[in-house]
Amino acid sequence: AEKTGIVNVSSSLNVREGASTSSKVIGSLSGNTKVTIVGEEGAFYKIEYKGSHGYVAKEYIKDIKDE
């Protein structure tokens, strides 16, 4: 049951290796980017990222929809 969301930041949002603010940053997404959410862990969504997965803070994702 995948969902999509939109990155809701003015600059960019860090994509992390794990569901923690201390996890390594593996990339970033600019505002209004559409993401595919494959799961959630605590305050983070697990998303599809560059052929693999990454984690982003839930508070910066809006317009969550079921695909």
Rank of each mutant, 00 (worst) to 15 (best):
residue 1 A to T: 09
residue 3 K to N: 05
residue 3 K to P: 05
residue 3 K to I: 11
residue 4 T to G: 05
residue 4 T to D: 05
residue 5 G to P: 02
residue 5 G to I: 04
residue 5 G to Y: 03
residue 5 G to L: 04
residue 6 I to A: 05
residue 6 I to T: 09
residue 6 I to W: 08
residue 7 V to E: 02
residue 7 V to D: 02
residue 7 V to Q: 02
residue 8 N to I: 11
residue 8 N to F: 05
residue 8 N to E: 09
residue 9 V to R: 07
residue 9 V to A: 12
residue 9 V to M: 08
residue 10 S to L: 11
residue 10 S to E: 13
residue 10 S to V: 12
residue 10 S to D: 15
residue 12 S to A: 10
residue 13 L to G: 04
residue 13 L to W: 02
residue 13 L to Y: 03
residue 14 N to W: 11
residue 15 V to R: 00
residue 15 V to Y: 02
residue 15 V to D: 00
residue 15 V to T: 01
residue 16 R to I: 05
residue 17 E to L: 11
residue 17 E to A: 13
residue 17 E to M: 12
residue 17 E to P: 01
residue 19 A to R: 03
residue 19 A to C: 04
residue 20 S to E: 06
residue 20 S to I: 07
residue 20 S to T: 10
residue 20 S to K: 07
residue 21 T to G: 15
residue 22 S to F: 07
residue 22 S to P: 03
residue 23 S to D: 07
residue 23 S to L: 03
residue 23 S to H: 10
residue 24 K to N: 10
residue 24 K to E: 08
residue 25 V to R: 05
residue 25 V to G: 03
residue 25 V to W: 04
residue 25 V to D: 03
residue 26 I to C: 04
residue 27 G to T: 02
residue 27 G to S: 02
residue 28 S to Y: 13
residue 29 L to D: 00
residue 29 L to V: 10
residue 31 G to M: 14
residue 32 N to Y: 09
residue 32 N to S: 08
residue 32 N to G: 14
residue 33 T to Y: 06
residue 33 T to N: 06
residue 34 K to E: 08
residue 34 K to M: 09
residue 34 K to A: 07
residue 35 V to F: 03
residue 37 I to Y: 01
residue 37 I to K: 01
residue 37 I to H: 00
residue 38 V to H: 05
residue 38 V to C: 05
residue 38 V to N: 04
residue 39 G to L: 04
residue 39 G to H: 04
residue 39 G to W: 04
residue 40 E to Q: 10
residue 40 E to C: 06
residue 40 E to V: 08
residue 40 E to H: 06
residue 41 E to Q: 09
residue 41 E to L: 09
residue 41 E to C: 07
residue 42 G to E: 07
residue 42 G to L: 06
residue 44 F to E: 01
residue 44 F to I: 01
residue 45 Y to V: 05
residue 45 Y to D: 01
residue 46 K to V: 10
residue 46 K to P: 00
residue 46 K to H: 06
residue 47 I to V: 06
residue 47 I to F: 02
residue 48 E to Q: 13
residue 48 E to I: 12
residue 48 E to K: 13
residue 48 E to V: 12
residue 49 Y to I: 03
residue 49 Y to L: 04
residue 51 G to Q: 10
residue 51 G to P: 08
residue 52 S to V: 12
residue 52 S to Q: 13
residue 52 S to P: 01
residue 53 H to G: 04
residue 55 Y to V: 00
residue 55 Y to D: 00
residue 56 V to Q: 00
residue 57 A to P: 14
residue 57 A to H: 10
residue 57 A to N: 14
residue 58 K to Y: 02
residue 58 K to F: 03
residue 58 K to I: 07
residue 58 K to C: 04
residue 59 E to F: 07
residue 59 E to M: 14
residue 59 E to H: 08
residue 60 Y to V: 05
residue 61 I to C: 02
residue 61 I to Y: 02
residue 61 I to E: 01
residue 62 K to G: 12
residue 62 K to C: 08
residue 62 K to N: 10
residue 62 K to L: 12
residue 63 D to H: 14
residue 63 D to G: 10
residue 64 I to T: 09
residue 64 I to S: 06
residue 65 K to G: 08
residue 67 E to G: 12
residue 67 E to F: 04
